[in-house]
Amino acid sequence: MLVLNNVALFGYIVPFLYVIYILRFPVTGNRSVLLISSFLLGLFVDIFSNTGGVHAVASVTMAYSRPLFLKTSFGISYEYNVVKIIEMPLGGIITYVLGAVFVHHFILFSLEVFSLSQWALVLKSTLFSALFSSLLILISFILFGSKKR
């Protein structure tokens, strides 16, 4: 986080890598634990960036809607098919990461800007930051996942 605050040097794109935790949480893990821990994670980020609770809300929403993205990316019976998310086909992983990160970033930027007149700014930030975050997350998936394959 302390490092990533400074990554915004390239233009206005701010990547949020901490959502990797929510993405990689075990598929069969306890859902309440995921919800509470992602709330605390988001709140932790908020404390460091003076944003009140916007990261917390975005993270919880992302954690809650995670099964939806798992379903669309890996099929309805994902709970039986998916052992480790990293070991799934790349196409599925990309859909999963993009979908979830878009939801997270959209809620994050809408709450942070919080004005209807600035909708263009919200959409622009969401689009570019989400693409950039997703790219970094996918790279880290490949970097840290290859050993176990």
Binding site: I47, F48, T51, G53
Partner: peptide
């Protein structure tokens, strides 16, 4: 799960709006 989700989101929104009002929300700041 849905109820837990609602509670956490409301809590988060509470922190958000509290920090938005100028000079308050002292305990959750840098």
């Amino acid at each position: 799960h849905f109820l837990l989700f609602c509670v956490l989101v409301l809590l988060g929104l509470f922190f958000t709006f509290q920090s938005r009002s100028y000079h308050s929300g002292k305990y959750l700041s840098a």
